[in-house]
Each structure stands twice: as C-alpha cells, then as structure tokens.
Design a protein around this nucleic acid. Sequence first.
DNA 1: TGCCATAGTTACCCAAGAGAGAGTATTGAG
DNA 2: CTCAATACTCTCTCTTGGGTAACTATGGCA
Lengths: 130, 130
Amino acid sequence: MPTPEKISYDPHAPVDPRVETLVNELIGRVADKWTLLVLEELEDHGTCRFTELSRRVPGISQKMLTQTLRQMERDGLVVRTVHPVVPPKVEYCLTDLGHSLGEAFCGVWVWAEANLEKVARARLAFDARG
Amino acid sequence: MPTPEKISYDPHAPVDPRVETLVNELIGRVADKWTLLVLEELEDHGTCRFTELSRRVPGISQKMLTQTLRQMERDGLVVRTVHPVVPPKVEYCLTDLGHSLGEAFCGVWVWAEANLEKVARARLAFDARG
DNA sequence: TGCCATAGTTACCCAAGAGAGAGTATTGAG
DNA sequence: CTCAATACTCTCTCTTGGGTAACTATGGCA
C-alpha cells in the first residue's frame, strides 16, 4: 500500500482509465444488496450453514442466496466447505479478502446508521416542497 | 476458529432490529451503481452541470441520470441549482451529507483498486476448477 | 423565419432480476 | 416402506431496470 497514513481520495491521482473501468465494474458487482447483507451476516456470526444464512438474512430467497454465495465464492470472498455426510452439511466462511471487504464497507454502515435521521428529514422536506 | 465471543469490535452489536432494517434499506438505496458513479464524479470534479455529468459518467443514459439525481436530491445528497437563463443551466453539487457518504465509500474504492488482481485471480482459479 | 443548445419529460419496449414453489439425491430413523 | 432433513436446482411467472427516441420550452442568432 503506497499511502502510509490517512486514506483520502485524491482527485489528482493519475488513474488509468482501464483500471477505473474495472474498479467501477467490481464495485457494481460487490455493492449488490444481497452480497452486502450476506457479507454483514458472515462478519457478525462467522462460519454459517446455508439454512442458517437463509434464516438470518431478512427476505432472501433460496435462489438468491445460492446465486449470491456462488458469486462471492467465485470472487474469492467466501470459502465453501462441503462435509460429505447425510444429510448434507455445507459451511460458508469469509476469506481474508472477504473480511477486508467487510471492513471497507464498515464505514458505509456507520454512515448509514449515523445519518438515517438526516436522510429521513431530507426526504420529508423534499416531498413537502413538491 | 477464533472464539466468537472474543470478537472485541463489532459495530453492529447493540442494534434495534427496526433500525437495522432501515439501515439495510438505506444501504440498498445508496449502494446503487449509478448513485455511486455520480457520487464519485461529483466528489472528483465538484459542481457539475447535467450534460457534463452525462458525458463523464460512462454509459449512463439521460433517463438514468435524471432519475439518479432526483433520488440523490431527495435523500439530501446533492443540491440542484437552477439558473433562470436561456439555454437552461442547472448545476449539481454535493451537500455535506453527500460528501460524508463519499468519504464513507472511499474505503470501498480503495479496496476495489487494491484487490482487483486478487479477485481476477480468484475468478480464474474458480472457473478452472469448475 | 427557422435552427440551435440545454435540461429535461414521456412513451414504448425488452431483458434481466427476483419470488414461489416443486423436484432431487441421500440415508438413517421409525 | 415412508418420512424427515439439507442444500440445492429447475421452471414459471411477474416486476423492475434501463435503453431509445421523440417531444417540450425558451431566447439568441443567422
């Protein structure tokens, strides 16, 4: 990591447009609603089984959970461990990469929690203005 | 496996489930592809006009840009300033709230930039296995 | 007189996203 | 012999996201 102390966004940093495209693409993939919620769950509760996740993540369907987990596995964010027993037992846990993403998103969660009120008030004001 | 109860930092620990629902909802809204890209653009270049944004944000259509900007305005993330001249001139700039969101997402951008390679390699490995 | 630019809005349409629910494989328990 | 449990997979359907393109308003300019 080239930046020693503070992480700050430098508008003048020279950015290869191809890299920027890839970054945008990756963010589009990773900043998906279900991915975020699954990530949060795995951060909070560590290793989880499939049905455990489907119970914990509010409103997710089996299909979406499978799909999301497959993508996360492909992207190297989670590890899928199959125990060859009957009934089947499959466990999911975050990789280091997944964990680091969770930390990166931590700021966003904190922001959301801290600014719920402001957003709610902004909406009321906006809707009142017509 | 580290013992679960030993995890000392947990930003989501004592959370009212209703608040958590709202936070998740807000994150779902704010972590939208176009919102993120527009936010990034406004962070980098400050105040922008409509067509300037549509030129800068890669691949966005007029419709999506309008829609995204309206939502961001409603959520209190941007300010829309109309100059009553002909031809029309409308400027968009981030509010303090929008700026703080940009900073919160900064960690994610840094993460994406730093881990592009790892994700790419993980995908190759996964696809080779499958 | 008619054209241009700006910042939209509106209508139409298609494809992707996502939910519901049934089907599948396995085998030990009753 | 049937059932229950797990972790899916498949199909069918509906909703939403998002693209294209045409339309609006206005005053300066040729």
